[in-house]
Design a protein around this nucleic acid. Structure first.
Lengths: 342, 342
DNA sequence: CTGTTAGCGCATTCAC
DNA sequence: GTGAATGCGCTAACAG
């Protein structure tokens, strides 16, 4: 039961008085960071705190400790399912380590990205996780210069500590899957060239081809945005050229894949039967589409875990660029290629 | 140019010394809340702060002021597009008012909801915006009892201050649209009965029917979850009963609508031609689907604006339950009903 | 293990 | 207007 729940907030002093100890003792007993003591005094203090409805004043604690146990997460936008999943995983992992994750969105404008970063730093976060890294962006470098603890997630600039999926392996899995199904004319639609993910997934795709003694024709590679609209546009481009229609498409992002699928159907090309499509990230939506999409699953939880390992002072070091292995999830959008179908 | 960018953080003292004034003067000059002074001293202080790369210590300021200029937002999950849009709008509006919005996710479990609320309160937020309200939930009541400033968003318990869309009007618009297109056998799929949005949208639907001298048959009303899977399930239920197939469906949520559409197609029922479908919220995805969905657009920006008006001490009061009017966005998923088609 | 003491950095009194 | 003084609530020395 909570008493004195309103009016003047309950302070540590109140708790200490109620428990008949000094504030410093009370402070120690209520310190989450050390293992919960089971002594009589500790119990008494905790009970008093509970009875009074004590809640530590974070501002005071942070001021004194010089740390906020808060980490800032920067994403382009939360309305992108991939970013929502990434933040969700980070938030959960942070919580399990006693930290609180706050998020700011940067949009696509580097200027907004700076603004959002400053906003986060203004809140005195203990560290930053950026899911926005562009290979041509100097924000990570600027953070390094300023000595601000940070980790890149999902993408890397190949310098700052980074936690991401093994995009090269993922690209390989996708193409390998299509090759195994008998496809030969495979188009690859990848994201913006300024993202490491786009480049690495393409590199993995190339490896799969060359391993099969083939090569990825450059006219079948398209680097576009990561949006649904980009997928629709590229889909039309791929399928309108009736002569050289690919029998399969690897879209290095689920949004792109949905767009490609949508374009295909609007042109009377039936997914799976006429064209196989593989996406990337395995966002929840795609398994419930009329034609469930085959996709490469990004292990967001592992990435979040690695990101926090890199960010927080856990002692143990190791490779500052951690890549978690993705998995291919086969679904209805990919099917064996039969010559006669064409 | 930023000097002293690392090492010991720059404090107000440093700025004051550099500008040749006292800390209290420096504090005043740098106070964002009062109109920016244009005096010479003010300029000097600001320049010094800038040169030194001064950044106010939020913890200290909050401790002293007794307020954090932070508001907490509680949503079930950010991977739900509706919630991501709502948070995004709140975050933007909060920022424009000098506040910072932090988010916590509650899942569907009331226990987690409590935990998430406490997490937010532990960060000493100045107020709470809840997008999770259930009519059977006593969290808002508990916040009222504890005197914690809060506003409900998107849903209301009809007691606490609330900012939401006018769901009754939205439901009316949706059904009116379908009636105008000549549909008579219209099914209504609404969300969980514990949400005010589900009830109000249904009420609006009923009003449109009765206004047309008709009545909504109870066997055509389904209250389910708000998920894609719920839509798929209900879609099958609606369309499998071959005899009494409705010619139109109003799904009180876009996810439901996508599910219904997906179910329809998997049963060989062509959206628009065989069945018209209206969704709700107008999340970005639905305009890019193979069959773009007609939907009722929820004005998230206005709702965010109203929520902050209600939460922050702006002086002006008024109705504590603010409803913003939605708009119907007609797209390809709804078409005129022709008798012969059946 | 406990209590006493001294700030963390800042905003706001209160005098001038 | 400006500056000196005070303390927000808490934690970390330090001493016992």
């Amino acid at each position: 039961m909570t008493i004195n729940a309103e009016q003047r907030p309950v302070t540590l002093r109140d708790v200490a008085e109620a428990a008949g100890v000094s504030v410093s003792t009370a402070s120690r007993m209520l310190d989450n960071r050390t293992p919960t003591s089971r002594t009589a005094t500790a119990e008494r203090v905790r009970k008093a705190a509970d009875d009074l409805g004590y809640r530590r004043n974070t501002s005071a604690a942070s001021l004194r400790r010089g740390a906020t146990t808060t980490i800032g997460v920067l994403v382009p936008r939360l309305t992108d399912a991939v970013m929502a999943l990434m933040f969700q995983a980070i938030e959960k992992e942070a919580r399990s380590r006693g930290y609180f994750a706050v998020v700011a969105t940067s949009g696509d404008d580097p200027k907004d990205e700076r603004r959002a970063t400053e906003t986060l730093l203004d809140r005195n976060v203990d560290g930053l996780i950026l899911a926005t890294a562009r290979l041509d962006d100097d924000l990570p470098a600027s953070l390094r210069d300023r000595g601000i603890p940070h980790v890149l997630a999902l993408r890397t600039d190949r310098v700052s500590p980074s936690a991401l999926g093994d995009d090269e392996a993922g690209g390989y899995l996708a193409i390998r899957h299509l090759l195994d199904l008998g496809h030969r004319d495979i188009a690859v639609v990848t994201g913006p060239w300024f993202t490491s993910s786009a480049r690495d997934r393409l590199a993995g795709a190339r490896r799969a081809f060359s391993e099969a003694g083939r090569e990825l024709a450059s006219q079948l590679v398209h680097s576009v945005g990561y949006g649904l609209d980009d997928g629709i546009a590229i889909g039309h481009e791929l399928f309108d050229a009736a002569g050289s229609r690919p029998t399969a498409v690897f879209a290095a992002n689920d949004n792109l894949a949905i767009g490609v699928l949508s374009a295909a159907r609007s042109l009377g090309i039936e997914p799976a039967r006429d064209v196989s499509i593989v996406g990337y990230n395995d966002i929840p939506l795609i398994s419930r589409l009329p034609v469930p999409l085959t996709s490469v699953r990004t292990p967001f939880d592992q990435i979040a875990d690695a990101a926090l390992d890199l960010l927080l002072p856990t002692g143990e070091s190791g490779d500052p660029i951690r890549r978690s292995l993705p998995t291919l999830i086969p679904r209805a959008s990919t099917a064996r290629f039969h010559e006669q179908e064409r």
